[in-house]
Design a protein around this nucleic acid. Structure first.
Lengths: 280, 280
DNA sequence: GCCATTTTAGAATAAAAATTCCAAAATCAC
DNA sequence: GTGATTTTGGAATTTTTATTCTAAAATGGC
């Protein structure tokens, strides 16, 4: 990566972070000429617009000329608008990508010490949790809780890597005396005939999807039961079943993921359902 | 505002909301040709990128041609990429307020919704993860990995709320082809006689401790097997068995805990053991 | 109030991006 | 296998957007 422009004259250093940018904005705004100040105030009030607007749109919003926007960007230490916008855009969704490479390196260069590995998982887990607040749609969550609170029996379906999720749900529901059945897949016995029309199913599966989970969910849908899906992307096969989708984006480390976010979602879901059912 | 293009032929209605878009994406993804499907999956996994990227950038990220992106957009009911991006950009601001402020808002305004509860669990989970790095002693962790890497068979013991931890360990070890037995407590059958002197036991239990776990661990100790304990405090009954202790202080929300930290520790432990055993 | 300096508006230009188009490749039906 | 149909990659074109430039307006010092 290279900085687009060599500084010129009074030039100030290019802000490298959103934080630095706003600090600079705060102090510079005093000394700026009228139109630039006007624009600075607009930016301060609408920082979310910068990443997704054109110069013309921002200029109109702030009631200044496009060229004023340009001068503002240069005044702030960027080579131009595009340069400044890059900072805003990167800041938005870039918590993820460098994790992927970091973890890959870690896997290639041997896992060093166990505590180093643990530190990585902790770090990834923390990001996953933050992301959870973004990927889970509050409306869908509320809907899921409603459906589950109404259900006669709740069926928990999820195997392999999703099994910790369903087994924890089973524990939580048991404690709250919510009637729930954990489908264990034990002895290859299929318990899908237990699912009645007034029941609901919580199906948890992540790519690569477990066929058994999909089969049970499909059967349940035929029966008329509601389905709540805990899965990773909207294109998950569970989407076809018109399931209420709760999305969890979790990073893989090799073949594994920390599951922190999934468990967190699961327990919040369970407690909400328990509260709503038990008299709340 | 006007709709840019009159429908043509098979055309589908333009999605008016993010929600409609993803529903459509979910169902359409089946019938899409190869490259378009490939792009659809990329979008499903990286929905946050659309608002702030160019066609070229997205195309590269998904490893398709720019024209494929164009065709995808039209297939989804838009006149072109710009049209689709407009939808994403309009919804962009919703996600702008970062995690921290969003959490605060939720906590201030009525905290009776499921998302508020989720926020609380997320917050607690993050703290627990932070704590994990402090409570887990690196030396003990290394020791645990050594012991488990040497063991002939690894026994996984943990019930009730600790069961998600052991079941995930079972999954991880299976994938890495490390011989491990999950003690399920099924049908009240006690499998403790399976534990041999050269084996090791991972025992997970938190207050209030499950008696069965303690019993199996005690029996294992008599046999001469090593014990690694995943537990909450040093005074845990497992301490008396001279177990290698890995401490996880998980915070409660009401009667429940998120388990984020325990799972995180478990997976780091498993991966380390797997690496050390498999030739590394 | 006049000159020097800074700032602005708006048009002109350059750069980048979106969109279209078409020949080649792949897929499908028979 | 053969021909018809769909899908694809890549270049050509058009549109949009960023950037530069300049004359006019505003500002400030005296």
């Amino acid at each position: 990566m290279s900085e687009p422009s060599p500084d010129q004259g009074s030039a100030s250093p290019t802000p490298e972070s959103m934080d630095a940018f706003f600090r600079r904005l705060g102090s510079a705004t005093e000394t700026l000429p009228k139109r630039l100040k006007q624009f600075a105030e607009y930016i301060a009030a609408n920082p979310d617009k910068v990443a997704v607007s054109t110069i013309a749109e921002l200029a109109e919003g702030a009631a200044v000329q496009p060229s004023a926007v340009m001068r503002f960007c240069q005044e702030m230490g960027f080579s131009g608008f595009s340069h400044m916008q890059k900072l805003f855009r990167a800041n938005y969704s870039d918590k993820w990508p460098d994790y992927a490479t970091r973890l890959e390196q870690l896997r290639e260069h041997g896992s060093e010490t166990p505590s180093a590995l643990l530190a990585e998982f902790v770090d990834v887990g923390r990001s996953s949790l933050e992301n959870l607040m973004i990927t889970v749609d509050p409306k869908a969550l509320q809907q899921a809780v409603d459906v589950l609170a109404r259900a006669e029996t709740i069926h928990l379906v999820g195997f392999r890597r999703a099994f910790p999720v369903t087994s924890y749900l089973a524990y939580a529901f048991e404690k709250m005396e919510v009637p729930a059945v954990l489908h264990s897949g034990l002895a290859n016995m299929n318990m899908d005939h237990l699912i009645r029309p007034n029941d609901a199913v919580i199906a948890a599966t992540f790519a690569p999807y477990t066929q058994l989970t999909l089969d049970i969910a499909a059967k349940a849908r035929e029966t008329g039961a509601d389905i709540v899906a805990i899965t990773d992307v909207v294109t998950s096969p569970l989407a076809r079943l018109k399931a209420i989708q709760l999305l969890v984006a979790e990073l893989d480390v090799g073949a594994f993921r920390a599951l922190s976010a999934s468990l967190c979602l699961a327990i919040a879901l369970a407690v909400s359902v328990g509260a709503q059912r038990n008299g709340k």
